[in-house]
Every structure is written in C-alpha cells, then in structure tokens.
Design a protein around this nucleic acid. Structure first.
Length: 527
RNA sequence: GGCCCCGUCGUCUAGAGGUUAGGACACAGGUCUUUCACACCUGUAACACGGGUUCGAAUCCCGUCGGGGUCGCCA
C-alpha cells in the first residue's frame, strides 16, 4: 500500500486538535483518534487543542462537555488549549466563534466564490429524488436567476443559504499521511452550503476556519471525513489559508468483523471501561496498538514510550477490529505493575458497593437497547470520589490483593474473585459444591479439619500447610481432595488464591464458623 | 447507483520483488501445581479471488468479489 513520507514542515511547531461534538458519549473509536492527535503533538513537542464542535446549537450541553473532559483527564491526555484552560486562539466552542465565521464569509463573498441559494427544501428533495431515480449522485449546482427574480426575492426577504460555487473541471489532490495520495474531480463535488439562512455556519466551513485560525498543522481525524476534505481544500484555497497536513484514520470495526463498531456491539463507551476498573495505562496502550504498531514484536508501551515512538507512518490504512480479549490481556499486564496501595484504592469502591456493582454489571449484560438511560453514559457514582479506607481495612485489602496476585486483572474483578473475604455471608458456587463437596468422605474430612483448625498453633501459613498435609497423608487421601473441599467449605468458590492464604486471611474463628455452616448445609442437602 | 478508501492466521500486526510468511491475543495440548491465575514449552491457523508484469509477486498493474465512507441547510 502507498504511504506518504513525513510532512514537509520540520520548522513549524506541530499543532493538532480533537473536535468532538458535545454528546457526552466518548466512543473508544473517537478516543483512539484523539489519542493519535495527542501522541502526535506530544511526540513533536507540539500542542494539542480541544475544541467543541457545537455549531448545531441545541447539541451544546454543559454536562456533555464535562463528561468528555473527564474522560480525557482519566486517560491522562492533557490539552494545551481548549475548554477550562483557554488559549490564544479561542474561544474553543464553535458556538462562540460567530465573528470569525462572518469575517470568513465576507472574504468569500468579496472573492465571488459563494452565492445565495434561495432553493426550498421541497425543490431540493425533488432534485434528490430525481437523481436517485436515475441512479446518479445528487449534485447541487447554481441555478440561473434573472435580476428580476433576484430583486423580488430580496424585496420579500426570502431566506437563503450561502453556497460555495465549486469550480468545474479541476482535479483536487490530497496528500494524506495515512491514505496516501487521493484525487477527486471537482465535478464530483456538490456546491456546498457554508451558512444556513439563520446565519449559522456548517461543519465543513466552520471546521476549516477554525483549523486555520487555530493554526492547526495536522488534521488527524476519522476516515469518514475523507471525502469532506475536498470541499474543505477548496475553502482553504479560497480563504488563502495555508494547507494543514491531513491524516485520515480508519474506523474501528466490531469484534471479529469488518463492520464499524457501534453501540450495539457491547461496551464501546470509555465510561464502561472506567466502570469495569480498567487502568488508564492499559486503555491507552490498547487503543494505541489498535491500528498502530511500532515494530514486529512490541506490544506493551507506557505513555512515555508511546510519545517517544508514535508516528503517523506506522498507522495502518485499513480498519482494525476492537478485540476485548487483547484489551483484557494488556490490562492484566499493566495491573501487574500497579503497587499495593494503588490496588487498594482501585478495588475498595467495588467491595464497598458490591451490590450496586453487581446490579450494574448484570443490568448491562441483560440490556437490549443502548444506552438504556442517561445514567448509562456516566461513570458509576462510587467511582467518582476517592474511597475512604481505614488503616485496618487497608491491611485486609492488602492481604487479599497480595494473595490474589495476578488473578486480579480488573479492579472490579475483586468482587467476583474475593468478595467472601469481606462478608461472612457465604455464597456457594453450585458447580464447586458438586465437584468438591458432594464426594465420599468429605463430611468427615471437614469435621477433622474443623477440629484441627481449632487447635493448630500458630495459625500461620507454614503451620497450616504442614498440619493439613500431614493430615491428608495420615488419612491416605490425596492432598487435592482435602484442600479443595476446605476451599469450597470456607469460601464457597472453586477457584481462588492458595488455600493457606485464604485460611490465614479469614482467621481461625471465621474458618471454623464457615466449615461448620458448610457441614450443616451438606447434612441438610443429603437428608 | 456515482465517486473515494480498504482487503496477511478468528483478532491486533510485521512485511516496501527472492522469508520455512515473523510476533502477539485468543484457542488446543503439555510442564509447574491444592483450584484458578501467572510463568514456560509445543501446536492449529493467513497473503480474498482471477488475470497480467517479472527469472521470481503478499509486495507492482488491471479486473472481480467483499467491507467501509460519502453523495445533508448533521458533525
């Protein structure tokens, strides 16, 4: 495939931007595009700008903007100019940049490249229908108007949109950093509206004015904008703006498919991964590797390494599918690097709100429509504030987390993996009960172990291991049978940390109580 | 339908005329082991198809098929 060589602006400082429309929802595909912009800027020591594309007035919602900003903050993608931080090229909301657009309109009118379009929606609809019937593309072209008509329209104050008059017979060339050289004949480009009758600018126009006025040097955006680029090229030219470098990033496909990833494909919103307890490092690493590679073997990259190594020429020109398995694996690799204190802070909220978490998790899996509600786009309330953990509680968390080791991949995993350490209420996994407890001799073994635990001294790892092993030996029983029976009897679960770790953390009294309870349960179910 | 983009294991990718087509995730088997996870070893698995060009094609050209985008007074 064709790849352009690096951009021809070594002396100019790189400025990139991400321009979301304020819906509040951060699709991971969009986040990846933002990440590429951010990495490119940081790699070159340039600036990353955030701009809110809210030309469609009613779409501007404050909450939505803060949701977006929170997502960026969570990932550690800081912006040099934009909402909250300001900057020299503001304002950073399109809805507040009216004057800039008006000035640009004046320039275009003076240059004679725009005209008033008095067409009605009905007329355009008819033309479109006709084009479709003839199986050809719909292209708007200027309709000749007599002077009499014109002055009549003006006199009656008929509303008009402003359209750019696309010059015929030219070939537009785009040297895209990801897609390579792409050409488009102007005859394929419709005369496009730049300003609505109410004076508000349209995306293709506003975006060019903003990118130019904000001195954006590299426009890195979703592939769906590739064909938008050609009318934009015409605007850059007519306005006398220098052309930025363009790079169009392929879309993210659904898992195991080449179809574009959509909300129907499960978790696609950044907030969902935050809710699951993914680490920003893991998310960043995964997203960067989705469509980008450094060499033939590197997979794990820290933020600093990404900044150092990211270049556009290593971005793939074909779509990549989202791979939740790989994300989970990368996350696991990063979780291994988190220290104990951080893991405590990360996991505590899930234990403190285990029921709320379970309900959320289950509800999400059951839902048919997405999003089920507005709250569905939010970060879980108990994750928004730092968890309060007393010293004593922290000690227990530390013991549990150490025992869990690499089993803990997601912060929320603590609920399914270790909830029994934090509640005396035993919940049995039916499969584990069947496999480990409904066996010949298990009631006797449990009775013996219960007695053993009551008198073993000291109640520590080495002694427990020693005593239980010799017990199994004396009974002529495989150690596995004893260990697994005791595991299920004390934790209710078939899997977990090493048994002796579990026993020590639980403590003598709790172990005895649990085994007694399990023995009663077994006795009842067998009678 | 017109125009434009894309097509290497199931997935992420390496690959820029000559490779036993490499790595990773997932999967399968094994070692370790009290379960699971980790670690380690092994294995299954790909150049969409068809024509060219060339001594030689995953790499270049054309076509077909498939996927995507766009054809808005949405962004």
């Amino acid at each position: 495939m064709f790849r352009s060589r690096s951009a021809a602006r070594p002396s100019m400082s790189v400025r990139t931007r991400f321009a979301p429309s304020p819906t509040g929802f951060l699709h991971i595909g969009g986040v990846r595009t933002a990440l590429f912009n951010w990495l490119l800027a940081r790699h070159h020591g340039g600036r990353f700008i955030l701009r809110i594309d809210d030309t469609d007035q009613q779409r501007h919602v404050d909450r939505a903007v803060s949701l977006i900003l929170d997502g960026f903050r969570w990932l550690g993608m800081d912006w040099d100019e934009g909402p909250e931080v300001g900057g020299e090229h503001g304002p950073y909301f399109q809805s507040q940049r009216g004057q800039l657009y008006q000035d640009a309109v004046q320039k275009l009118m003076a240059a004679g490249v725009v005209y008033r379009d008095y067409s009605t929606e009905a007329e355009r609809a008819a033309d479109k229908a006709a084009a479709e019937a003839e199986k050809r593309a719909y292209r708007f072209r200027r309709k000749p108007l007599t002077n009499a008509q014109l002055s009549q329209y003006e006199a009656e104050g008929r509303p008009f949109a402003l359209r750019f008059e696309v010059p015929p017979g030219r070939t537009l060339v785009l040297d895209d950093q990801i897609k390579g050289r792409v050409e488009m004949k102007t005859d394929e480009v419709s005369d496009f509206v730049i300003v609505r009758p109410d004076g508000s600018p349209l995306y293709n126009f506003a975006s060019v004015v903003d990118d130019a006025e904000m001195r954006i040097t590299h426009v890195v955006r979703a592939e769906e904008h590739l064909s938008n680029t050609f009318p934009q090229l015409l605007l850059f030219e007519a306005l006398g703006y220098p052309l930025p470098t363009f790079a169009h990033v392929p879309y993210v496909a659904a898992p195991g498919s080449k179809k574009k990833l959509s909300k129907r494909d499960g978790a696609v919103g950044l907030h969902e991964f935050i809710n699951d307890g993914y680490l920003p490092e893991g998310m960043l690493n995964y997203l960067a590797r989705l469509g980008w590679s450094y060499d033939d073997s590197s997979e794990i990259f820290s933020k600093a390494e990404l900044i150092e190594k990211f270049t556009l020429d290593r971005v793939n020109s074909s779509p990549a599918s989202h791979d939740p398995d790989k994300l989970y694996w990368i996350q696991g690799e990063w979780m291994k690097t988190a220290d104990l204190d951080r893991k405590v802070r990360l996991t505590a909220p899930y234990i403190h709100h285990a029921d709320a978490w379970t309900a959320y998790d289950r509800g999400r899996k059951d839902r048919k429509e997405y999003p089920a509600s507005a709250e569905d786009q939010e970060i879980l309330p108990f994750l928004r504030e730092p968890a309060e953990v007393s010293d004593a509680e922290a000690d227990r968390f530390k013991a549990v987390i150490e025992a869990l080791g690499d089993r803990l991949k997601l912060a929320s995993d603590i609920v399914k993996l270790a909830r029994y350490f934090f509640t005396e209420e035993l919940t049995y996994d039916p499969d584990a009960v069947k496999k480990r407890l409904k066996k010949e001799g298990v009631p006797e073994i449990l009775a013996d172990i219960e007695a053993l635990l009551a008198e073993v001294e000291p109640f520590d790892l080495a002694t427990l291991e020693d005593r239980i092993k010799s017990y199994a030996e004396s009974r002529g029983e495989g150690i596995g049978k004893v260990v697994n029976a005791v595991r299920v009897a004390t934790t209710g679960q078939g899997v977990g940390p090493g048994l002796y770790d579990c026993l020590v953390i639980l403590g003598r009294e709790s172990c005895i109580r649990r085994i007694a309870q399990t023995r009663r349960m077994l006795a009842e179910s067998s009678s």
